[in-house]
Write a protein that binds this DNA or RNA. Sequence first.
DNA 1: GATAAAAAATGACATTTATCAGCTTTTTTC
DNA 2: GAAAAAAGCTGATAAATGTCATTTTTTATC
Lengths: 228, 228
Amino acid sequence: MSKCEQCIVRQLNSLNELTKDELIRISACKTSKVIKKGEILFNEGEYINGVFCIKDGVCKVTKMSDNGRDQIIKLVKKGDLLGERSLISEEAANLRATALNDLEVCFIPKEEIVKDLKQNNNFTMSMLKELAVSLREADDVIVDMAQKTVKQRLAETLLYLHNNYTKTENGALEIQLSRDDIASIIGTATESAIRLLSSFKKDELIKLKGKDIFILNPEKLKKIAEGF
Amino acid sequence: MSKCEQCIVRQLNSLNELTKDELIRISACKTSKVIKKGEILFNEGEYINGVFCIKDGVCKVTKMSDNGRDQIIKLVKKGDLLGERSLISEEAANLRATALNDLEVCFIPKEEIVKDLKQNNNFTMSMLKELAVSLREADDVIVDMAQKTVKQRLAETLLYLHNNYTKTENGALEIQLSRDDIASIIGTATESAIRLLSSFKKDELIKLKGKDIFILNPEKLKKIAEGF
DNA sequence: GATAAAAAATGACATTTATCAGCTTTTTTC
DNA sequence: GAAAAAAGCTGATAAATGTCATTTTTTATC
């Protein structure tokens, strides 16, 4: 099994604050998993008892609404941690994680993380900072959901994907989301999402080719997202 | 000036993890402020350089949307901290705080908090846990905003106020919010909020008397919030 | 590669929500 | 306590979004 000390992915999150000794200890007790596309990494209500570190792939993190519809809260990719929030607040997972493509993850048991949180202040501070940033991002999402139209939210989401995910050689967004998933990010009905995508396509803001999405006019999308 | 060591409010937040010596040190450098109803405690984009501890009163925390409308992200009351998130992530405030009634707050300078975060692991862990809980709550709000109707959100908000705020002797909700504020919590137009309040009143779920709101039928409100 | 199943797309229509205008009530100010 | 300002309320209407039914396209399966 690969070693944490040598893992590049680790450097993308709080784990890079751990000392060499701590890493070696964690490396010895971590497990690796491969999750196939569409499979569930963990479910809402489950006690995860540890933290996942995403080594490769993308994962959607969703929460079921009272009315039975899934809402995508965030997308998680290489280098991100998953499950820290529940671990820290000592609650069951409030979200479900589902692989959007084949996923490689490492699992670190709770006790190891807790031990390091207690003894390594740099690690704790880094975690604290990560949560603080996540909280600001969540505030932004709340405002968007509450105040923006579906059209604005779709434009925003497309831009987000454009700016935060790599492209294929031909320039399409790397992550392939179903229309259902897109609707579930912006919080609307699938049909509404499809209709708006078509209208963006007609206006030549994007190009659609099956599940491939090409962003043609990010400037205009930005204006739409801002309400013009 | 009052002393932190003897302050009851402190016990409601992470500050109760500080040692006696740490409290005495903080007590010596903290300042107290009284903010009048309607006044702004801090603004979006400001560097606060410290943490506020609410001693008495209620405060709305808002964020301006691109389209110029304020969204209330949360209400903050006696015992809550304000500004920790920005302090930890070392960013400007992402939110504006406005007093809903006369507010008594203590201000603790950043350096003091940082010092304690570095040297008192219990304090840091407690902060970490608070942020983790806030993050789950934010996730819940996102789902509600994205998936629930305005009617559901209003029912939910009324229940939230009912369950988390004290009542006056005659049974009304203690916090008095303007119709504008209520609309700004649930993310809708003021007129829509007013109309729905009237319809809840007509259905005898609530009683309205000026700004006083009486919750008459919490069970039914719960059902509405859940979509029935 | 034919068939079945799933996903995507479109139209028609219903419902929800926003907007604007006008009116009434409450609060503030002098 | 009268006048002005702000907040609250209501109706009419427009715009946004959801729902349901149907068709087309893509993907999976044997």
